[in-house]
Design a protein around this nucleic acid. Structure first.
Lengths: 156, 156
DNA sequence: GGCATGTCGTTAGCATAACTCATTACCTGT
DNA sequence: ACAGGTAATGAGTTATGCTAACGACATGCC
């Protein structure tokens, strides 16, 4: 084992802005991959599907396809497919828009709402556990960082 | 447009630890998707492939498949495939491990090293631009957050 | 009213990137 | 010397995006 015994994979501290983008990108990429893997095994929905349910839940239970797509930053066809899955699993229902016949409103079903509630803590079990292992200061940093990351993703 | 005109998609402030996991997860998911889309168009390598090159670069230019896989948090077969791509594009070379015939050492070629160097700033153009738009304080938060996120991804 | 243009969702086809399972090659310890 | 473990790979599958094209509907202009 003569190669990279220490395996830093990330600098201990990012001191300058020069490397910040690169390190942030790596961190985000890897953590996302980890999160996708660590979903609870007794939950048959993917992390993306749960994301859509959560988005509906936070927004009062009903959004159009386009709004969902914009919110999750995917293209409408991708959201159509995700919604198809959620519909056939019975977690959402489609209904026509009240005034605009082109649009489709996606609504949380009772089952979907139940799932969000039941899953609310459990779905983040892994991450919550890891967060508990952090110091209060580290959690404070992340609490401040989350909205900034969100803004970065949303900008322009 | 009677549905969710405000479209919060993320709470303005994450005040309690209860929601931290959920918000962090959303932020990471969306920013990652954004990063994957915003890669520079004149770079024919994907964000993952560039990640592997960067990893090799930071670790002295040579790691085994297994080490690379562990570092990027993918399974060895996935890394084999990524390395195949990088090999056929001439950015890395495989060579046998000095003492262990089972392992394969992946090494940055001159071309790969060149690409990393040439790409170092450019490849993060989008993120760098967005980072410049932040306040110094916000950048400081992210600078502190990046290693924490990395640790979260790596833990256990 | 009627047509041109635009918007929304969907379908179809494709690309990427991950996974699992099985196989091959090699190492190591008894 | 052989058994069992480990590394890389091959094959097949799944998940998740995308673009292009299309149909249904809305809107604005005459």
């Amino acid at each position: 084992m003569s190669y990279a015994n220490d395996m830093p994979t990330v600098e201990k501290v990012v001191r300058t802005d020069a490397g910040l983008a690169a390190e942030l990108r790596l961190s985000v990429m890897r953590l996302r991959r980890r999160l996708a893997n660590e979903r609870h095994p007794d939950n048959e929905l993917s992390i993306n599907q749960m994301g859509v349910l959560g988005c509906l839940f936070r927004n009062g239970g009903a959004l159009t396809i386009g709004e969902l797509a914009a919110s999750e930053r995917v293209r409408p066809p991708s959201m159509t497919r995700t919604v198809n899955c959620l519909e056939s699993s019975g977690d959402v229902v489609r209904r026509p828009h009240e005034t605009d016949g082109r649009q489709v409103v996606v609504e949380l079903s009772d089952r979907g709402r139940e799932r969000v509630l039941a899953d609310r803590d459990r779905r983040d079990a892994w991450l919550n556990q890891k967060l508990r292992d952090l110091t209060a200061e580290e959690r404070a940093v992340l609490r401040k960082a989350a909205p900034i990351l969100q803004d970065l993703a949303q900008k322009d």
